[in-house]
Design a protein around this nucleic acid. Structure first.
Lengths: 194, 194
DNA sequence: CAAAAATGTGAGTGATTAATCACTTTTTAT
DNA sequence: ATAAAAAGTGATTAATCACTCACATTTTTG
């Protein structure tokens, strides 16, 4: 039964994310993770030093997947406005498929218990906003967006808009289709930028 | 030392909010509240049946205060766009002065442990969005905003925008001035609606 | 003033849970 | 094959925390 380290680690991370999505971060106990993976609770600590270390790696995994999905939106083989529209859609799609992400983002653990986790999220958010800002900058230069825009500020508002939307989705028990919001959301963003 | 019930209840609620702002919801234990109020931990339960009941009343108090502060924005003695601008500013100001609000909003306790709390927040958010939608509706009718806007949808995006901004503020340790964001935020909203 | 009601408290209880540890089994490397 | 390393486990620990209870004090009320 003793699987190789990396494989078991991935199982633990994926189980953690699945449980976070289903039950919320608070209920993701090391026991619950162990049960889902099919090992004893103590075994979890063979693979991660602490519980927070699991969350940290889960967040890192989500970030890497997200940037992978968005990567072609950040490369200019198309007009900036088209790519930004695609980015909005892909982002909502990704979150729809990974409900664990908003759960982690909205958890107290992240917000106050673990400065390290918070730091990780800060870095990811900054990188994300910076990349969106570059995209907008390009759109301004090419005349797709208004000339008087502050790219960094606009990028900040766009990420805020998406996060706020996701938060409402989370508060309302994921009971509306997030992806369906992509179209009107883009209409709103587009008219703010043009 | 035995103070009247309502007075003690208010002390407990205010202490809870202060602690939530400073330390985050997780660390607002009944012991911490009791220490701050200056009574024994057991005394807390003379005034509230459960810990969640404290949070519930704290949220209700915040909501009543918020709607009080925003009340004149919802009454039409002025152009809708001016009132909406004022609403955005007042809202950010209010949250700046009540950091406990985002802490409660982002806590997993609210999100998953207590359906009753979540329900309360849902109701408040719906009322808020509805009132903003009415404001926008009026602005559309009077020609201050675009004719093709969906008022309810726009109101949803505006609240999402504010909430997302507040979330970033929370994740970044309240380390930028939220009120200062009011001006550029309004510029963004205004250009999206006009 | 006296009874009743409200407020307050110290000392618990029980439940939860991350982390440890001594020991066993399995896998990997030489 | 065999030694070393890795993976796994049951039992336990230590800490935390909401909540209870019997009893004391204060406040309110008739």
């Amino acid at each position: 039964m003793g699987k190789p380290h990396q494989q078991r680690k991935q199982e633990i991370i994926q189980s953690t994310l699945a449980l976070a999505a289903e039950l919320g971060v608070k209920k993701v106990t090391t026991q619950a993770i162990a049960d889902r993976v099919g090992v004893a609770q103590a075994t979890i600590f063979r693979h991660f030093k602490t519980r927070d270390a699991i969350f940290a790696e889960a967040i890192a995994w989500l970030a890497s997947q997200l940037f992978l999905v968005l990567s072609d939106c950040f490369q200019s083989q198309q007009d900036a406005d088209q790519r930004l529209q695609r980015l909005v859609h892909r982002q909502l799609q990704f979150i729809s498929e990974h409900k664990g992400l908003p759960r982690l983002l909205f958890s107290d653990r992240l917000h106050l218990e673990s400065p390290a986790l918070k730091q990780a999220v800060q870095t990811i958010m900054q990188r994300y906003t910076r990349e969106v800002a570059e995209l907008i900058e390009e759109g301004i230069d090419r005349g797709h967006f208004r000339q008087d825009l502050d790219a960094m500020q606009s990028a900040g508002f766009i990420t805020a808009l998406i996060q706020g939307l996701v938060m409402r989705w989370s508060i309302f028990n994921f009971d509306f289709d997030l992806e369906q919001e992509a179209k009107p959301l883009w209409a709103f963003i587009d008219s703010a930028l043009r």
